[in-house]
Design a protein around this nucleic acid. Structure first.
Length: 231
DNA sequence: GATTGATCATAC
DNA sequence: GTATGATCAATC
């Protein structure tokens, strides 16, 4: 029996419309949203790690499978769902973008993928506690954010240090321990995936694909300020 | 309990 | 295979 699947929602035509749509899903459960879209809720996220993000994309009318442009391309807004605990604090880091391992040294911060991705973000908190069934998890109030001067300076500092190391061929020396707010971690389907990179001797080498991630502490501060959550 | 390194699904 | 969406699970 074919299951009803709702047609794709057209992208919001304005920031106001996007805010309004976000307000309509706030407080609702993932099960309710999925049901409205004709989608089945997975019993676990082990084999559906991106499911929550994709559900909210559809619910808000994000342009799907957009390559190298924001989720809401016309509005220049990126969508990020963030799993939070009972106190509203993020329980996971947030993936920002993959790292172009060979061209990084030539790009200034202003033109970096990190800055472009984070220029304007609609954060959608979603209950992420493991004790709560996926379908019962509730969506929170969205926050349309742009880094303030201080936040941008913090991100820029980390980015310049990390990308500088990569530009000098030091990718293999980078671990997730580095970076106060922004960190570099593997980003691949599995550990055998390899990407061309430059090593410290200037020779072409093979390494694992990496991505930039925001530490949960940084995202927590964004949410804390906006929602006046306990520090 | 928090963090790091590894991993999973899907579209193209 | 590359790019999107992230969370898992071993380890600190």
């Amino acid at each position: 029996m074919p299951r009803f699947t709702a047609p794709l929602l057209a992208p919001p035509s304005s920031e106001g419309e996007l805010r309004a749509r976000a307000a309509t899903i706030a407080g609702r459960t993932l099960g309710e949203i999925a049901s409205g879209l004709g989608l089945t809720v997975p019993s676990s996220l082990v084999r559906a790690k991106g499911w929550v993000g994709q559900l909210v994309e559809r619910a808000l009318g994000a342009s799907s499978a957009s390559r190298d442009c924001p989720d809401f391309a016309e509005l220049g807004i990126e969508l990020k769902t963030v799993p939070v605990d009972g106190r509203g604090r993020p329980v996971e880091s947030t993936f920002v973008c993959t790292i172009p391992l060979r061209e990084l040294c030539e790009v200034p911060w202003e033109q970096s993928r990190v800055r472009r991705k984070l220029d304007r973000v609609l954060w959608v908190p979603v209950q992420g506690e493991h004790g709560v069934a996926i379908a019962e998890r509730r969506i929170g109030t969205a926050l349309l954010w742009r880094p303030d001067e201080e936040q941008e300076a913090l991100l820029r500092f980390d980015w310049e240090e990390l990308s500088g190391t990569i530009g000098r061929g030091g990718i293999e020396s980078l671990t997730a321990h580095l970076g106060r707010h922004l960190q570099v971690r593997p980003k691949a389907a599995h550990s055998r995936v390899r990407r061309r990179a430059m090593d410290a001797e200037g020779e072409l080498s093979q390494t694992m694909p990496r991505g930039f991630y925001l530490r949960a502490t940084f995202t927590a501060e964004i949410l804390r300020r906006h929602y006046a959550l306990p520090g």
